[in-house]
Design a protein around this nucleic acid. Sequence first.
DNA 1: TTGTCGAGTAACTGATATAGTTGCATGACT
DNA 2: AGTCATGCAACTATATCAGTTACTCGACAA
Lengths: 136, 136
Amino acid sequence: MKRNSRLSLALHSVAHMASEPDRLRTSAEIAEHAQTNPVVVRRVLGKLRQAGILKAEKGHAGGWQLARAADRISVADIYLALDERLTPVSEDAPPRCSVEHALERRVSLIMDQAERDLIENLKGLSIAEARFPIDT
Amino acid sequence: MKRNSRLSLALHSVAHMASEPDRLRTSAEIAEHAQTNPVVVRRVLGKLRQAGILKAEKGHAGGWQLARAADRISVADIYLALDERLTPVSEDAPPRCSVEHALERRVSLIMDQAERDLIENLKGLSIAEARFPIDT
DNA sequence: TTGTCGAGTAACTGATATAGTTGCATGACT
DNA sequence: AGTCATGCAACTATATCAGTTACTCGACAA
């Protein structure tokens, strides 16, 4: 796999679930399809479960499933559930140098705003819509 | 240091140079101020030199300096010079799975647009302006 | 009630990225 | 010639992350 593979794996898995919402999928199935490992799948999808996006059933006929309708799950939900920020988290280090502090503060504000804008855009894309071929 | 420290180091160094454009600074000075290593400084500032943002003079009274006026250097110039993309570079992997491909393509388009918007915003912030206290 | 199956999770391994470090060549100035 | 600074290659240390192994817990079925 590569960097940002968690988002890819999450999107891929959820997109498939959206196409057949009633079907339960095991982490082994998903892992085989995504060419990765069942434990990796459970780690990533576990985040989505904690966020209330997916349900997981243990036991004999267990597996993974969407926790709500596909058109009520946005890509932003998934992005946020993984908790991977693009911009570096602001440190609470003491501002040793005022020159450094002033500039970095400004740049951080711009980057934070960019990420908020990104999330707003991702909110407008549900995983139900996203299954259709590209139209832009 | 931490992740994204290269951008921090670059911004910090350039901000100081902008406050005294005629003064040459050695990588040892800069490293001491930034609490890092001279070689690390030369690696990062070397990218800015290649991008035409900084000049480096070897020898006795050598050191680093802005290559042009501070108000003609934007944070976007520095950001781009470091060549560190937020969004993962699109792989030319064969689209094994159409479901995966459709969704990831859409998300990639949104993310790429977000980064372009970010760069546009950073273009509007010169390192000369950025030295002043925060006003937003 | 026992066996099977699947999620949940901890612990480890291997690969990769990056900061830090050492050492040396090159170039400029005294 | 000597000194000082950049340029750069090579190495080390560390952190992150995917992959893997090995379990526990819970649900269902024979």
